[in-house]
Design a protein around this nucleic acid. Structure first.
Length: 834
RNA sequence: GCGGGCGUGGCGGAAUGGCAGACGCUGCGGACUUAAACUCCGCUGGGGAAACCCGUGCGGGUUCGACUCCCGCCGCCCGCACCA
């Protein structure tokens, strides 16, 4: 044992400056908790900063993707705090939804049990990560204290006509046994949740009238600091089109309305096309055509949406003639009315005027069925278009021809004239249409917010009075999906009394889409237990809007559009004055499994952080994830390189840790001190700017370079001076947001008072951050031939002279003619010779 | 088809039009160690003994100078997808 003792004592001595995350992390985690250093105080007079990260689904355990998504916002929030902001950086759980229900069914456990167990586990994992979360503000959406306010907002919307029930053709997922919103259908007919093929069904459902806000949702995008691609996706999804609504009289006497963005081509309309589902189809079809038309309508209905919608250039247009004719209102021509599946009932009026000469689809249809084509727009400075020979439609600008009084009118400039005339004639009006559809919010599943209305035989649909909220989701329901809500078979939930007449009534059994929960949750963090409204406007106002919102790009449309819609509704209700919820948005890329595919729990390709933390420490994992590459890019996971982060942490720790033992009253040459201070201040600048620019990988590179330089200097005289302490302290502070644990330990080893996370972020001194000399490459004909060291800020002429003084350069120039000399101060010199 | 993004060593990646490959990993060599791990030092795009030459998907162009800007291709990824 005595031999062992010796070993232990020497090892201990040697290891004093060796960082051990396993010993240090739990210590500081406990200290932070005891001192409640992350507790956010509403009354703090400092300027506010609201940093929000998309709350996770409590799916079980955190994987490295969660860490990736969360580490960066955590670093940013910590920086803002050190900069002197009062930072709100909350977290919660998006706890309702299908996965809980499905997992519950699979494991024969109640969704609530499953969910709350997962939340406890995940909360612990966030703490392991060293996240700066104030858990006292936690929001859990399956808590009645939360979802009662979904119901309250629903009732407000119902009162304002923004929530309504309507029948219609809706998407149905046969696997999840529920309807879906348009936004939740991918690639034409794939369920966003489970990947099953979905199809249409005619059902009566609940909707939110998001279309009322289409224009505002589109317009307000302009003022947001969001990634351009997200704004583009939202613009496309809203799909605003300007044009006109035109009315065509049918020979049957019916009026057929169409929407067109090209009213200037109305003189070229040579036929009309209705969607197969158009209500007029049945009434206008002639007896001779009835059989053909009915067969086509049936076929269209049976053809899966994906087949119908795929725009394969080779896909042939199909359709049939109804036997009916319309009169073109501008030239009184008799034109045939067809039906075809390329016209969609869900857009515009479900009917079009076909102008084959100037529309790609109409052109293909006309060619396929040998329908007339008439040119009415002639491009300028080009050969006259000939309908008989043209190989493709002309869709560009030009002048109107074959258009009566409008001949010669330029388009698109002349469009307003045409619309004005149509309006005068009573044939049409200017109209704007949107692709955006109302949001279908009812679901036939169990684990969600009950929709707070009842149906009474006498009073019909009656809203549940506000004071009876919440309508609680019964925890003892049999929730296996059957195609209708499981609540239908829960007698005591279903049967109730009518709030209006007191008679027998049935509750609505559908639950709300979980995207309702996430459409306002960030307001709730500002007053998580407020019980008079969804949130306390007085508390929310000072924090609003969210300054920085971070999350996955997969929410570019769904959640972010709904959240914007809700904000505008809540504004109109009077709960907030904000028009927009999230001022600045940043999306992280996705961390994929090593083989480049999406990480999947079921395929076992999900990488968990716990083992990595145990082996390398939380700080090293945080750094590794940030160092992988640009945060907005994502990429396949690998753990190569995490050792590099560990090495960096150890080196930084060692340097700082030794400082505590030094007297730091030594002397060193002035230029060495100046060089060290310059390095320190340049590093402050780099790290600060990189975080502000969301360039976390290069931010870490700057920290590593700083540490490597210090490592080289630690035996030099300059390491015995006060500027060495400045360097060590600065390194510690700069590391604090990224590596909260080791930075705390370093701060403590420096002999400073707890906590490093309550210190002020260092500010660089521009004068100190300069360098005295700079190395300038000297090129001959664009190739580097020498490098000269000159004073920083040396002017152009002097720089050129210095370059030409170089022997190597003189050799290169001698005997040649100098054609051009370029000298860029601080950059380079290039001499062009021949 | 339309819209957006990307393409750089063995790998992840860096580079306001100005020294391509910062930083990290890997690999190789060395020091320390009884030994290993850890740590430390050096080298690490290709060719060449060297001077140098070649090199950022391909082909052109602008420029004293292009990974960066422009034009035309090729490949990959994402979004939308008959939106009248």
């Amino acid at each position: 044992m005595s031999a062992t003792d010796t070993t232990v004592s020497t090892t201990t001595h040697a290891d004093i400056h060796r960082y051990d995350p396993q010993a240090v992390e739990p210590k500081w985690r406990a200290a932070w908790k005891d001192a409640a250093i992350y507790r956010v105080d509403d009354g703090d007079p400092k300027p506010k900063w609201y940093s929000l990260t998309m709350y996770p689904y409590p799916s079980g355990v955190l994987h490295v993707g969660h860490w990736y998504a969360f580490a960066v916002p955590d670093v940013f929030a910590r920086l803002q705090r050190m900069r002197g902001y009062n930072v709100l950086f909350p977290m919660g759980f998006d706890a309702f939804g299908l996965p809980a229900e499905n997992a519950a069914i699979r494991n024969n456990i109640h969704p609530a049990t499953w969910t709350f167990e997962n939340i406890a586990q995940m909360e612990h994992q966030y703490d392991l990560m060293g996240a700066m979360i104030d858990w006292s503000r936690k929001v859990v959406t399956c808590d009645p204290e939360y979802y009662r306010w979904n119901q309250w907002i629903f009732l407000q919307m119902l009162e304002r006509g923004l929530a309504y029930r309507a029948g219609g053709s809706v998407w149905w997922c046969p696997n999840d046994q529920t309807v879906l919103a348009n936004e939740q259908v991918l690639e034409g007919n794939i369920c966003e949740r489970c990947g099953a093929e979905v199809h249409k069904r005619d059902l009566e459902q609940w909707y939110f009238k998001i279309t009322d806000y289409a224009e505002e949702l589109l317009r307000d995008l302009d003022g947001l600091d969001w990634p351009e691609r997200v704004k583009t996706m939202q613009r496309n999804w809203i799909g605003r089109s300007e044009g006109a609504r035109l009315s065509f009289r049918l020979e049957t006497g019916d009026e057929l309305e169409v929407f067109t963005t090209r009213p200037d081509t109305v003189f070229g309309a040579t036929f009309m096309v209705l969607a197969p589902e158009h209500p007029l189809v049945a009434t206008i079809t002639t007896d001779e055509q009835r059989e053909t038309v009915e067969a086509y309508v049936q076929q269209a209905r049976d053809t899966s949406e994906i087949e119908r919608q795929t725009t394969d250039a080779a896909k042939k247009k199909t359709g049939v003639f109804t036997g009916a004719y319309a009169i073109n209102p501008v030239n009184d021509e008799r034109i045939p009315v067809w039906i075809a599946d390329y016209v969609l009932m869900t857009y515009g009026t479900g009917a079009i005027m076909a102008v084959p000469a100037h529309d790609t689809r109409d052109f293909a249809f006309a060619r396929a069925f040998d329908l007339p084509i008439r040119v009415v727009i002639q491009p300028e400075d080009q050969e006259t278009l000939d309908a008989a020979t043209m190989a493709e439609p002309y869709v560009g600008p030009g002048r109107m021809v074959n258009s009566g009084q409008f001949d010669g009118t330029p388009v698109p400039d002349g469009l307003p004239q045409v619309i004005a005339w149509l309006d005068e004639q009573g044939r049409g009006t200017a109209e704007v249409t949107y692709r955006l559809r109302d949001w279908l919010i009812s679901r036939q599943r169990y684990w969600g917010t009950p929709i707070p209305v009842v149906y009474c035989d006498d009073c019909a649909m009656v809203p549940v009075p506000e004071e009876q909220l919440p309508v609680e989701l019964p925890l003892d329901a049999a929730f296996t999906p059957t195609g209708q809500s499981p609540l239908v078979s829960h007698e005591s939930f279903l049967n109730t009394t009518c709030p209006r007449c007191g008679g027998a009534a049935r509750r609505e059994t559908d639950t709300m889409d979980t995207f309702v929960d996430s459409s306002w949750y960030w307001f709730r963090y500002t007053s998580p237990h407020f019980n008079a409204a969804p949130f306390d406007p007085a508390k929310a106002a000072p924090w609003s809007p969210v300054d920085l919102y971070c999350g996955g790009i997969e929410h570019a449309i769904l959640h972010l559009l709904y959240a914007r819609f809700f904000t505008k509704v809540l504004r109109d209700i009077g709960l907030t004055e904000e028009d927009e919820p999230f001022k600045r948005l940043r999306n992280q890329g996705m961390i994929l499994a090593a083989e480049g595919t999406k990480m999947s729990k079921s395929r076992g390709t999900q990488v968990g952080p716990d083992e990595l933390v145990a082996r390398h420490g939380a700080d090293a994992l945080r750094l590794h994830l940030m160092f992988l590459g640009p945060w907005e890019q994502g990429g396949p996971w690998n753990d190569r390189g995490i050792t590099g982060m560990e090495r960096f942490i150890r080196r930084a720790f060692q340097i700082v840790s030794e400082v505590g033992e030094r007297r730091l009253d030594g002397e060193a040459p002035d230029k060495d001190v100046a060089a060290l201070r310059s390095l320190t201040h340049r590093t402050i600048r780099r790290v600060t700017e990189d975080i502000d620019d969301f360039q976390f990988n290069t931010m870490i590179a700057a920290l590593i370079e700083f540490t490597n330089e210090l490592m080289k200097l630690r035996d030099q005289p300059v390491a015995q001076t006060a500027s060495w302490r400045e360097a060590a302290e600065t390194l510690t502070l700069l590391m604090a947001p990224s590596t909260p644990y080791v930075a705390e330990e370093m701060w403590s080893r420096l002999g400073n008072a707890f906590s490093v996370h309550q210190q002020t972020w260092p500010v660089f001194d521009a004068a100190l951050a300069t360098v005295e000399t700079v190395e300038i490459p000297v090129q001959i004909n664009g190739k580097v031939r020498d490098k000269i060291v000159v004073e920083t800020g040396l002017a152009q002429d002097a720089l050129l002279a210095a370059a030409k003084a170089s022997e190597r350069i003189q050799e290169q120039i001698s005997g040649k003619t100098v054609i051009k000399e370029i000298a860029v101060p601080g950059r380079l010199v290039n001499i062009v010779v021949r």
